[in-house]
Design a protein around this nucleic acid. Structure first.
Lengths: 205, 205
DNA sequence: GTCTATACACCGATAGAC
DNA sequence: GTCTATCGGTGTATAGAC
């Protein structure tokens, strides 16, 4: 009788190829923009013909889907790593959390567009790829509760306000700091509104 | 010697055809989404073959450009009409202005996407089409100054915060009211922060 | 299983006849 | 000013070589 191998080398190779393809897609997105990720360009970069990509992904949107899931997984890992570093003071913790989000968002434009904006027209993430983003939101809500912000309404609002800053930054002052520099002020406004204790996050004007 | 006609019938006809084309593009955008506005679809709706559109517009993006300019012109007209209606109380005037924006934005999704988001990948508005949006912002700044909000920093922030609400509404609760219902609250937060006088815009919690 | 060759239907855009 | 014909591009499908 034959011994069962304890590793599936074929599956490993397949997974490695999928990673290669997704990496190539990220490279192209970084160089030429997210909308210029074409199957032919991806294929050329990994040394295939474009139809061969269908062996590994069932469609172009499936590649976007893998990128979407990877991006949110990376962000989830980033904020999970921060677990012990959260300041004890509520307002400082709030600023720390949302600065982490802003830093991650601004570090990579095509990644941000894929994660948070609708630049790829047809694309809707699958449930599997959506899962890490759900876990991110769960963790965010949990930490907000820990800080002293338990109401869903308040968490929604906080996320929307910071999202507005990031969007305005990309749209009206790309590469600059005109909007994002007001993050401490926005969080102070928000903290004041919900009566969160602690010293102000910005200098008094 | 020949008399000069006081109307250029040819130019009038040309302008009418351009309008027909733009109207057809809006119809398609409303029915099938902004990204499904193809030259063939537009041509079919106006009873032409697609290459004939190039007689009236130099490219597909030129059609988007005309739509962009028209949308901002419409919004400019909307807020200019409101000139006498602005409440005297600063906070009420603030709410009135931004509710007008939110109403206009939510009334027509493809229009909002074209005006404020980057859903058409290649498209950048020409200077001419951009002009009405500049006039809108100038008028907004002027009215904010009248209300008692002269600082550019504050105007930027107010616009970004409300933009964040609208974006979050479309992205996370389309057709609902979860984010937009918090508009009075956001404006109160903002008004409190800059020390704008007047009674609160929302009930005390 | 993995990849290639070929083809299809669609896109925006152009050339040239009428 | 509008047409037909066509170009190079796209995502996608499938037959078949290895």
């Amino acid at each position: 009788m034959s011994a069962l191998p304890n590793r599936d080398r074929r599956a490993e190779r397949r997974e490695a190829t999928r990673r290669e393809i997704v990496d190539a897609a990220w490279d192209i997105a970084g160089d030429d923009g997210l909308e210029n990720v074409t199957l032919r360009a991806v294929a050329e970069r990994v040394g295939m013909r474009s139809p061969s990509l269908y062996t590994h992904f069932e469609s172009k949107n499936a590649i976007y889907d893998a990128m979407f899931g990877q991006a949110w997984s990376d962000y989830l890992a980033t904020i999970e790593d921060l677990d012990g570093e959260l300041p004890a003071a509520p307002r400082k913790a709030l600023l720390f959390m949302l600065m982490t989000f802003v830093d991650f968002a601004t570090a990579n434009l095509p990644r941000f567009q894929l994660m948070n904006q609708r630049v790829v027209a047809d694309f809707t993430p699958t449930e599997a790829s959506y899962a890490p983003s759900v876990r991110v939101m769960d963790l965010f809500r949990e930490r907000m509760r820990t800080i002293g912000i338990p109401r869903a309404e308040d968490v929604d609002l906080c996320a929307a306000l910071v999202g507005g800053l990031v969007d305005a930054q990309f749209a009206n002052d790309p590469g600059g700091n005109r909007y994002l520099k007001q993050l401490p002020r926005v969080l102070d406004m928000f903290a004041d509104d919900i009566g969160l204790p602690g010293p102000t996050l910005r200098r008094i004007r």
